[in-house]
């Protein structure tokens, strides 16, 4: 590698970070060398997730919140995720439009990402991108998810504080409260509070939170904030809520528990991904997969045995041993 992107990123180069992120998105091998170097420098930034239904005002809020955060001098990284088209593989990344007033502040880095088929309201590489922005020196990283339904809650796997944005008058409040989205909120934001019905929505959420609190003991009850993101109203309070959640996490020790859990989950996920990739590569190359599928079709073989055999074979294979040797050398 001719250019040391990792070193440049540690010096704050947006351009180097941008390139590394592209490699991560493309799962380009060149990324991992850099990521190894950057890892020791990560874990410092605080990660805020902004999620909610399409058009709830996530981008507007992200922009307005960033303005508030910047007042305290903190540097901000923004990841804005939009869906890829399942048909063409392309994507229209429109969140940045709302953020253009932030575009030429050198202490803000905004990256639009497409989901590239990854479900859950996030881009696959998002967790890695968080690390890049962290290493780049951003103090707070705000992630705007895809406009989500109810199952797309992957944001909790990345964010320290997850803000769930709701809007009055959509009639889906009660609906979504039943589902997972209620569970993941560390902070509730009722945006478009200039629309009628925000008090009612607020009351509904609070009632539901009370009910929850009676059912089980909770150290943290999600505060409910009202905002008018287009007019910048209520953002100071929202930031205070996020900060007090952070304080709660730190005081209660949950912060490290969460991160430990996350790191373990991620490590497993990466191992899983890599194992799968190399095994699959080998099976495809040596033609064993096609042959096995044929046998499975004819019921000459069952997939349970196949799985066990393949794993056993792989572990004792020379290829496996070679990889092990390579890694101890490097």
């Amino acid at each position: 590698m001719s250019v040391d992107y990792a070193a440049q990123i540690l010096e704050g180069s947006h351009r180097a970070a941008a390139r590394l992120i592209s490699w991560l998105e493309d799962e380009d091998e060149r990324a991992y060398e850099c990521m190894r170097k950057l890892y020791p420098h990560t874990g410092r930034a605080y990660v805020v997730g902004i999620t909610g239904s399409p058009g709830a005002g996530k981008s507007t809020l992200t922009t307005a919140l960033t303005r508030v955060i910047r007042k305290s001098g903190l540097k901000v990284g923004i990841i804005a995720v939009d869906p890829s088209s399942p048909f063409t593989g392309g994507a229209l990344l429109g969140d940045r439009v709302r953020m253009s007033e932030l575009a030429d502040d050198p202490d803000i880095y905004i990256r639009s990402m497409a989901t590239r088929g990854f479900l859950g309201g996030m881009a696959k590489a998002a967790a890695d991108v968080v690390r890049v922005l962290d290493a780049l020196g951003k103090d707070v990283i705000v992630i705007e998810t895809v406009g989500v339904g109810q199952d797309e809650v992957d944001i909790v796997g990345v964010a320290d504080t997850t803000c769930v944005v709701m809007v009055p008058g959509l009639g889906d409040a009660i609906q979504s409260m039943k589902a997972g989205i209620m569970e993941i909120a560390d902070v509730f934001v009722i945006n478009k509070a200039d629309h009628p019905g925000s008090d009612m929505l607020c009351a509904e959420i609070c009632a539901r939170l009370d009910m929850d609190a009676q059912l089980r003991e909770r150290g943290w009850v999600a505060p409910v904030n009202k905002t008018v993101a287009v007019e910048g109203v209520g953002l100071d309070e929202m930031w205070l809520s996020i900060e007090s959640h952070r304080k709660y996490l730190l005081d209660s020790g949950r912060f490290y528990d969460n991160r430990r859990e996350r790191i373990s989950r991620e490590a497993l996920r990466m191992i899983h991904g890599e194992l799968f990739r190399v095994v699959r590569e080998q099976l495809e190359q040596n033609g064993r997969l096609d042959a096995a599928v044929e046998q499975l079709m004819n019921r000459k073989l069952d997939p349970y045995t196949l799985m066990r055999d393949i794993v056993t074979d792989w572990l004792s294979s020379s290829q496996c041993k070679r990889r092990r040797d390579e890694d101890t050398q490097s």
């Binding site: 947006h14 941008a18 063409t88 229209l92 990344l93 429109g94 575009a103 030429d104 639009s112």
Partner: peptide
């Protein structure tokens, strides 16, 4: 262009050259 498989960031109206170049840089 998105339909042709590209990932297209639309910046919206009223961009200064500085904003455009910052976007190009950050988005690689």
């Amino acid at each position: 262009c998105a339909e042709a498989g590209m990932e297209v960031v639309y910046t919206g109206l009223r961009q200064t050259p500085e904003m455009i170049v910052a976007a190009a840089e950050q988005e690689d």
